[in-house]
Design a protein around this nucleic acid. Structure first.
Length: 287
DNA sequence: CCCACGACCTGTGGGC
DNA sequence: TGCCCACAGGTCGTGG
């Protein structure tokens, strides 16, 4: 599921376990995820100290003390599990995340102080690479990325430029990581619903005055989701369970046939396939 | 350049 | 119950 809020939640969960620690043992249990692991992947990681765990868009970046950075993308189904001491499972924990299937445990990281972090990814759309830290911003994965939506670099002018003259709906443009980096299918649906903007109508025809509010709503939706992720971490403790999934109520996403929750609307949520992805929208207030 | 679509891979849930 | 199809949170490449 990982869009920006989920990746940020994962980062916050992993940071206390990994930051400042030396990796004493690393295991790649298969030769690849979406792409092959880089040459000498395990050896280049083993013995390195993890200086900082940061995030850019949907990428997690673990800066090492050897001039390289481990870059990780969770794809559609990637998640991390932090090993927990025997017996620390809490009642009800299964409501939070199902037990990961061990056959999809592809990468294991162990730290000098006994921590163990396991990467699971059934669909293997995720990927990892080691990139020279000094060249990170020039790397193809990062070079073209748009601004972080929660930063000041993302504003109405940005959208105005990106939308100008475009026939595509705002839905597909907001999914384009070059326009703004970190949104995915769920949060774009949520944001457009709250902003009462049609996902389908040409982005170039959206009145300028709606773009400022849209920016604010995108920030709001992401911030709320990060907050929800944070609650999950607090409730279940970062030190146990699988990171990458958390409970969150959506107002539009996956609510086909249900009532729009915008105040005073009362319309019905519909679903249409747009650019190969499901778009959930209110047939009334997003017409 | 713009845009739609299929591919990548496995699992799950709904309908019959 | 069992089977089959549709669909799933993300990119990437191709071809019109």
């Amino acid at each position: 599921m990982p869009e920006l809020p989920e990746v940020e939640t994962v980062r916050r969960g992993l940071a206390p376990v990994l930051e400042g620690r030396r990796l004493t043992r690393v295991e790649a249990r298969r030769p690849d995820l979406r792409f092959p692991f880089p040459e000498g992947f395990v050896q280049r990681l083993t013995g390195a100290r993890l200086v900082a765990l940061t995030r850019r868009a949907k990428y997690l970046m673990a800066e090492l003390d050897r001039g390289e950075t481990l870059v990780m993308h969770l794809g559609m189904s990637g998640r991390f599990e932090i090993a927990r001491p025997e017996g620390s499972v809490r009642p009800g924990e299964f409501h939070y995340a199902p037990d990961p299937n061990p056959k999809h445990a592809h990468v294991v990281f162990e730290t000098e102080d006994g921590g163990r972090v396991t990467y699971y990814d059934p669909r293997r759309f995720g990927y990892m690479d080691l990139i020279e830290t000094a060249t990170l911003t020039d790397h193809p994965w990062f070079k073209g990325l748009g601004p972080e939506p929660l930063s000041g670099a993302f504003d109405a002018r940005r959208l105005e430029t990106a939308f100008a003259g475009r026939k595509q709906g705002p839905k597909t443009l907001l999914l384009d990581q070059r326009v703004v980096a970190g949104l995915g299918n769920i949060y774009v649906c949520e944001a457009l619903n709250r902003a009462k903007i049609s996902p389908f109508k040409p982005a170039g025809t959206i009145p300028r005055k709606k773009l400022g509010p849209l920016v604010a709503i995108i920030r709001e939706v992401l911030a709320e989701a990060i907050e929800a992720g944070g609650s999950t971490l607090r409730d279940y403790a970062a030190a146990d369970g699988a990171l990458g999934y958390f409970q969150h109520r959506f107002r539009a996403y996956d609510r086909e046939g249900e009532t729009c929750l915008n105040p005073g609307c009362g319309g019905t949520i519909g679903r249409e396939v747009q650019a190969g992805r499901s778009t959930f929208y209110c047939q009334l207030c997003q017409a």
